[in-house]
Design a protein around this nucleic acid. Structure first.
Lengths: 148, 148
DNA sequence: ATTGACTCTGACATTAATGTCACGGTCTAT
DNA sequence: ATAGACCGTGACATTAATGTCAGAGTCAAT
């Protein structure tokens, strides 16, 4: 019973308890440990630390990380996410005025990228067609030489 | 008249003459000097060298570089281009069997990329609509409070 | 106390074409 | 021969999130 303080912490968070260590949060969210540390460096999450330096994540951090990943999957940068994450974690997204401009800018970027890719795709498809038709021309010419 | 050999070369290529130096080829093709050197390192072009080490580009190099840039603009990598450039410079594209597989693979990649972007775009547009409609809901609710 | 699982930080790598800089050699007109 | 424009090579930077490794510290169970 010499480590009473530690026992007390264990008693409060019986098993698989809170706060989470980084590996536990990683499993809970699907984000790699490396990514969690990166999000922290980008200012997206700020875990507490134990005396020995281990990160301590509170319960809310799971939702927080999932939210971050949702926005990353929309193609937003960590910098953009940092601009409104604080707000959207506390309110409905629609009440955060910083969100809509970012969304609309991203939408425009996406439209431009799509347009570019579609244009390239057209060029490429046209060239493929051109090659295929030139080849069939040749095959049919060969066919006329040997008509049996 | 001590530099007779040099005078001779000048006589053969009177002014702005061949072979081109790298800066001249750059202007003739629109590719930066940096890029021309890069294409060389990637094995796409192999200029001769003067005794002093300057690159010498023959007339054909202009077409060659323009061809390289055409393929780059289709999204192909220098490595892919290297796989068929030699052939397409000497034949019609349709006769180079290495071209079509590369084109078709690139087409598939483009389709996947476009699909991804379009999917993200849909998510984003949906979220924007959601925000806008929530806001109009609120505005109309405010409107009902003040009905004069 | 020792071992194994976990964590910490910091660093380097990834991709591909291009920009840019530094330092030094070459050419040409004066 | 000297200045100015040109060329040579080599190196570092760019972008953004993530992987991976090394070296060291922490924790828990035996």
């Amino acid at each position: 019973m010499s480590r009473s303080i530690i026992k007390l912490r264990s008693a409060i968070h019986p098993k698989e308890g809170w706060p989470l260590k980084i590996g536990e949060l990683s499993k809970a969210t699907g984000a790699s440990i490396r990514s969690l540390r990166y999000y922290e460096k980008q200012g997206l999450i700020a875990p507490a630390r134990t005396e020995s330096g281990y990160r301590e994540y509170h319960k809310f951090a799971v939702e927080q990380v999932k939210t971050i990943r949702l926005y990353l999957n929309l193609g937003l940068s960590t910098e953009q996410i940092a601009g409104f994450l604080h707000c959207v974690l506390m309110n409905k997204e629609a009440f955060c005025n910083e969100v809509l401009p970012v969304y609309q800018q991203k939408l425009q970027e996406l439209d431009e990228q799509i347009q570019t890719l579609v244009r390239i795709r057209s060029n490429l498809a046209e060239r493929i067609q051109s090659i295929l038709s030139e080849r069939t021309d040749n095959e049919s010419m060969e066919g006329t030489n040997d008509e049996s």
